[in-house]
Design a protein around this nucleic acid. Structure first.
Lengths: 156, 156
DNA sequence: TTGCTCCTCACGTCACGTGAGGTGGC
DNA sequence: TTGCTCCTCACGTCACGTGAGGTGGC
């Protein structure tokens, strides 16, 4: 029971909220707690209104409505934070949608996490390769600078 | 004299070619050595024809022509390799054009290199931040997995 | 009425991908 | 004639930015 309960936060990136996995999936009618307007959410998460509407268009968010105005519940806030975290480490919106689907799908919780772990692991490798290339470029310039300094030293 | 000569490769990323800085700048009429067709260059550098034409449209490359066909000299090949290296570590084409301009501008060679060094240094920091975030995400998932395993252990 | 926040088109940007339709030399 | 490589539009994609023009409650 305890493990099942912990899975309300499938990626381990809590938002400080406390809805269960069930609430998370049945988000449109979640009865709990605070609601955010698009402006509030944008300010709090440092994104633009356009970005929030764009994620909705891509099926990553699904806020309920009050007339035409969007209202975001705790579940949507959690999704947004996951989206932003995965974006910052270089995932595309398509990959993020897949990962959200994995995270919130039925089936074995440990298996879902292992799947996500593998994806992030691969991304870490990509980022480390990039960093190594950048460090190599730096080293090349430093070598050039050192050669130059030797040249200057010789001419002085 | 030596230092000035070394600056024919302002980023320290040789191509195995040996044209001087002057040749590099006066590239359209470089009289030396091999010429590449767009197809040859694309194969050798693992880019598409479209990418090469796109870089040209953006002012990053300026091959000479044989009728309508493009011909790339050693200087263009050098530029392309720099472009691809900087792209791989996350620079935009606009930033790359600026860096090429710095690299090939007149003025103090050491100063030009220091400018480029600072840019790449900043990019290394960006990449390291990204990687740290990704590693943190991994750690979070691992914590979740560990908690799950403990839960399973307790229920067994 | 003014001001603030929200809304929906819809075109622009960046770095190309991807055909569409045509040319030139072996 | 076929095949290969080259060419120039020009529209599509991804992740939004940026107005344009309009609505709704204090």
């Amino acid at each position: 029971m305890k493990p099942e309960f912990r899975s309300l936060d499938p990626l381990g990136w809590g938002t400080g909220t406390s809805e269960t996995l069930a609430t998370l999936i049945a988000t449109p009618v979640a009865a709990d707690g605070r609601l955010w307007t698009i402006g509030e959410l944008a300010r709090e998460c440092a994104v633009t209104l356009r970005a929030l509407r764009f994620y909705e268009g891509k099926g990553l968010l699904a806020p309920r409505r009050d007339g035409t105005a969007r209202l975001y519940g705790a579940a949507e806030v959690w999704r947004l934070k996951v989206i932003l975290r995965l974006k910052r480490i270089g995932f595309s919106l398509i990959a993020i949608r897949e990962m959200l689907e994995i995270a919130l799908s039925g089936g074995d919780v440990a298996e879902r996490k292992a799947l996500l772990r593998r994806r992030i692991e691969r991304q870490v490798e990509v980022l480390e390769l990039q960093r190594d290339e950048a460090v190599a470029a730096l080293a090349a310039i430093d070598e050039e600078l050192a050669a130059l300094t030797v040249g200057v030293g010789q001419s002085a």
